[in-house]
Design a protein around this nucleic acid. Structure first.
Lengths: 197, 197
DNA sequence: TTGAAAAACTAATCATATTAGTTATAATAT
DNA sequence: ATATTATAACTAATATGATTAGTTTTTCAA
């Protein structure tokens, strides 16, 4: 008699996000998700293409949310200030959404056009911020890759508990960022040597 | 009549390493491993504590090998030169052993003492290299964390195919490293500001 | 050579994902 | 309002993998 649930994708993704943020991406299962949603596991196949399809959708969703989060942090800022804001937002997002963040980096299909586009928009946001330094396009890409490496690396080592010693982790991040930014300045000053603009 | 195989742990780990390097850590299964070793899956339990136990042992083994690899690269070098050598070895190791490298960053149990000690030895190696800069102990730790973030971040983004654009990836790495090293110099020069030594 | 320990085995169970086929509900068109 | 259609739920069944229990074979040392 209890009327059947009627779901849509956004509700499913929301619940799946809660689950992965609580229990980790590796513990995501269709059984548990279905239970939470009060449906039977096969019913999920009406909305998505199995567990891998779900992970893929989580990835896309996660990157889009990350982008929004970084964008909000960056608006109205420029130069070093904007880089710091972006970066802190990135790390903060991963702390708030550890499972969803994981999903953005471990997806089943990297050919997915929607995913690629979402990722690209993050890259472009950072490229825009770097325009303050008047770099050649190619150098800007190298530096974006560098910043991304820093952010992802720091984030995931923190998440795996890799910074064992009892020394302030936020300070480590702040120093890392400062060091990289100092390095960028030093590159900008030696434009000739690094053939930019 | 075919005489039974008689295995030991090192053979199992060797074959498991081959499998994860070829098919990825997520596709490691006891069934496939047993098949390769020409035994039945339950027999593996005589040597290790299930799939998670295997992953844990792979992690320890991987970190130890990574340490050796970095050590070999660093001997006889110092300063910037040693940092570059260490770093290139790290990235190279991850390229040679993508699955094993993954295992070193996604293990079931981070409390494992043997794992922690192996990780610590890598940290100490880098601390030693940084002694060339006469930093305060704490600052050295921050910089080691930074370098580790850079190396792990670059490595895993490369592995996930995250550097989409057709721009030289090795060059990106080299610039990233140079930028960070430049940043370290700039910190060393402003010792007073950063309260070191 | 015999007894204990190690390491293989078979058989069975459990957890999950997935597919096939069916039914109930909601939305839409008549 | 009612009939039709599409959506989204369901049950039942299958497949893959990990794991456990209990047994047998082999090795090694006394």
């Amino acid at each position: 008699m209890s009327q059947r649930i009627r779901l849509d994708l956004s509700i499913i993704l929301q619940k799946a996000t809660e689950l992965v943020d609580e229990n980790g991406l590796d513990h995501l299962s269709l059984g548990k998700l279905a239970e939470e949603l009060q449906i039977r596991p096969p019913s999920l196949y009406n909305h998505l293409d199995g567990l891998n399809g779900l992970k893929q959708k989580l990835a896309v969703n996660g990157v889009k949310k990350l982008y929004e989060y970084m964008l909000q942090a960056a608006v109205g800022r420029s130069g070093d200030d904007a880089i710091r804001a972006l970066s802190e937002a990135y790390v903060e997002f991963a702390r708030i959404h550890p499972g969803l963040y994981d999903a953005t980096t471990r997806f089943p299909n990297s050919e997915d056009k929607e995913l690629q586009q979402a990722q690209q928009s993050v890259v472009e946001l950072v490229v825009q911020v770097l325009q303050a330094y008047n770099l050649k396009e190619e150098m800007a890409i190298h530096l974006v890759r560098g910043l991304r490496s820093i952010l992802h690396g720091f984030t995931s080592i923190e998440k795996m508990g890799g910074f064992g010693m009892p020394i302030d982790i936020d300070k480590s991040f702040s120093i890392l960022l400062n060091t990289y930014i100092e390095g960028i300045h030093s590159i900008v000053i030696n434009k000739d040597k690094y053939e930019l603009v």
